[in-house]
Design a binder for these strands. Structure first.
Length: 596
RNA sequence: UGCGGGGUAGAGCAGUGGCAGCUCGUCGGGCUCAUAACCCGGAGGUCCCAAGUUCGAAUCUUGGCCCCGCUACCA
């Protein structure tokens, strides 16, 4: 199955806020680990995402800052690229929804659905702010609840008494943006006919009950069994976004939930074009054997397990026709490994209260691999987890440094010192040596099994357990004792341990790539395990957008048993990780909840 | 009010019918190559409570208590 194309589709961050550890562990990091693993397996991997640039929140933020939506989105977009590069999130392409290409593909999807009869129009009343000359989403309009009299009810529901409200009965409505009085105006929108698509979506999900996670099934199939799908509006009265591609619909845009998910497809197309292989994207979208994995947070499950499949199903072969290609349906999601949420010190992460650990801020004080390690052992794969600074401190010092980092350091330092930096010839290996190597090599199957099932915590746990096995082996063979009486025996021990470490390096590389690359050089390799990341600028009629890319050229990592030979010249080793001081726990906790 | 998740050793978790496990911490021992790291052993649990099903339940059923999240154009 080496040739199975793997699409790693990653949630699109909304360009309205910085990225915190909950976002990272929820979707971006597991996607990267999964993509790196498959690259080591030699599979044709495409990992794509981008900034979600459109929507009312961004226009309002821009207004508040006296800038344009374009500038507001670009600021966050560029900070995302900075973070992803520093953390080694190896997107083959991280782009944006504000591109000619994405506009074009989105319009084609819209037209494909329309041509196939899955769109309809309907009129409704929406709040209109005369002061700003634009429509406002319900959550930006508040007033007095006509049921309980609370003064701060949203126009669609009252948080005080919990009632769902009818917008036109709200007393003294006012805009949350500027306090002005909005009015209800009739407007017309396009709807996606989910009711008509439901049988096909149910069929799609039922075929995947075996491997979809329970949380995903619950919020998709389970939800549909409880309540049938109804049409959803896919356009909005907005000017910042993708214009509805029809005459007479000026001033209306495709709504973000409809448009942003199309980014997985459009980013694939952009990737192919940037590489001057314009048909390359079809490997992941037209080929039946391709597998696509959508890494998202639990808040996104209905969009990816129900609505996006409905959009793809609804396109039929019409999208390929609009692209000028032979008839093809589009590849449906193979898996949607959605994670739950990560809390922070037992409280929900909240950007507005600054109750968060921000990615870039963290990396200004710590290295990326400790973050990747902690976020993986603590990944909310089956339920909510908690970021706890004391726990971070201990996991770093007592697990990452003590078990794995120390193993590498003790073996390499000892070998480098006593054999002049050359891997000694072990001669014939002893039974205990062979047993240790066999145990570690088995990891290429067991760890792979966990990876394929997207059980990343378990995969990392197994790799770390094997590191412990090597430590035990060393304690028994005790090369530091052997070398005093029988240097040949000591050579067998260190050779065995170094081969084991070289194997573990491969298994751990998807999780902690930076330190594994470094270890890779200590072991005398010249070509890196992975390729390189770079940022470049792309110009089109909408302006300019920066993209993050991954270039696999030069990558030499392979998911296979080490073939290090005796006589190999090693490089001067050093500690892979830093021990943390206990003081950081209180220092970091003191930062929480403070605004600077 | 409704829906969902959860209550297992000091902490964090795994475990969905068959002698209660893992990591960290703790106590004792070993080693000294290594970032006082590594290895071995011990202590420590009424598996929230109650009733029930069963030869047998942490694991299934029912009732109760407690904690958390969500309740939908906050993508």
């Amino acid at each position: 199955m080496t040739d199975t194309p793997i699409l790693v589709a990653v949630a699109w961050p909304y360009a309205n806020a910085e990225i915190h550890v909950g976002n990272l562990t929820g979707a971006y990091l597991p996607a990267d680990i999964f993509a790196r693993y498959h690259r080591l397996r030699g599979r044709k991997v495409l990992m794509v995402s981008g900034s979600d640039a459109h929507g009312t929140p961004i226009t309002l933020r821009a207004d508040a800052e006296g800038t344009t939506p374009y500038a507001a989105y670009q600021r966050f977009h560029n900070s995302f690229l900075d973070l992803f590069q520093q953390l080694g999130l190896s997107y083959d392409l991280f782009t944006s929804t504000h591109t000619d290409n994405h506009f074009d593909i989105s319009k084609k999807i819209f037209n494909a659905l329309k041509n196939n009869g899955y769109l309809y129009t309907e009129k409704s009343k929406q709040w209109y702010a005369t002061s700003q000359g634009r429509f406002l989403p319900d959550r930006y309009v508040e007033g007095t609840c006509y049921i309980c009299g609370d003064n701060f009810a949203r126009s669609d529901q009252c948080d005080k008494c919990g009632s769902l409200l009818e917008a036109d009965k709200l007393i003294n409505p006012r805009s949350k943006v500027d306090g002005s009085t909005p009015e209800l105006r009739e407007t017309e929108h396009y709807y996606l006919d989910l009711g008509k698509l439901q049988p096909q979506v149910v069929g799609f999900l039922k075929g995947k009950q075996e491997h979809l996670r329970p949380n995903v099934l619950r919020q998709s199939l389970g939800q549909m069994e409880a309540e049938a799908l109804h049409g959803r509006a896919i356009t909005r009265d907005l000017d910042w976004g993708i214009p509805v591609p029809l005459e007479g619909w000026e001033g209306k845009c495709l709504y973000v939930w409809f448009e942003a998910v199309i980014g997985y497809l459009s980013a694939s197309v952009e990737y192919a074009n940037l590489n001057k292989l314009p048909a390359d994207w079809q490997n992941w979208w037209y080929e039946p054997q391709a597998k696509s994995y959508y890494f998202i947070g639990k808040d996104n499950i209905p969009f990816h397990a129900v609505i996006w499949p409905a959009q793809l199903i609804g396109c039929g072969v019409e999208f390929s026709r609009l692209m000028g290609d032979p008839p093809h349906t589009l590849t449906l999601p193979f898996d949607v490994p959605a994670n739950e949420f990560m809390n922070l010190e037992a409280q929900k992460i909240s950007g507005s209260r600054n109750w968060a650990v921000w990615g870039l801020d963290f990396l200004s004080r710590y290295d990326p691999d400790p973050l990747r390690y902690y976020l993986t052992v603590n990944m909310p794969e089956t339920k909510d987890t908690d970021w706890n600074w004391d726990d971070f401190y201990h996991r770093n010092n007592d697990e990452l440094v003590a078990t794995w980092g120390n193993l590498v350091n003790r073996v390499l330092a000892f070998t480098y010192k006593h054999w002049e930096g050359v891997l000694p010839d072990p001669g014939l290996l002893r039974p205990t040596d062979k047993e240790l190597l066999a145990a570690v090599e088995k990891g290429f199957e067991t760890v792979a099994g966990q990876m394929e099932a997207v059980h990343l915590r378990a995969a990392l746990g197994e790799s770390m357990r094997l590191s412990g096995e090597v430590n035990k082996y060393l304690d028994t063979s005790a090369p530091w004792f052997e070398i005093k009486t029988d240097k040949a025996a000591a050579a067998k021990s260190v050779y065995t341990a170094i081969l084991a470490i070289d194997n573990l390096k491969t298994m751990l590389a998807p999780f902690i790539p930076f330190s594994c690359e470094r270890l890779h050089t200590f072991l005398g390799y010249d070509a890196p395990l992975f390729g390189s990341q770079s940022v470049e600028s792309v110009k089109d009629s909408l302006g300019e957008h920066t993209v993050l890319r991954y270039d696999p050229a030069g990558a030499s990592g392979e998911w296979k048993v080490s073939t290090l030979q005796p006589g190999r010249v090693l490089r001067q080793p050093g500690p892979l990780f830093k021990k943390l001081e206990p003081e950081i726990v209180e220092q970091e906790r003191a930062r929480l909840g403070k605004k600077d």
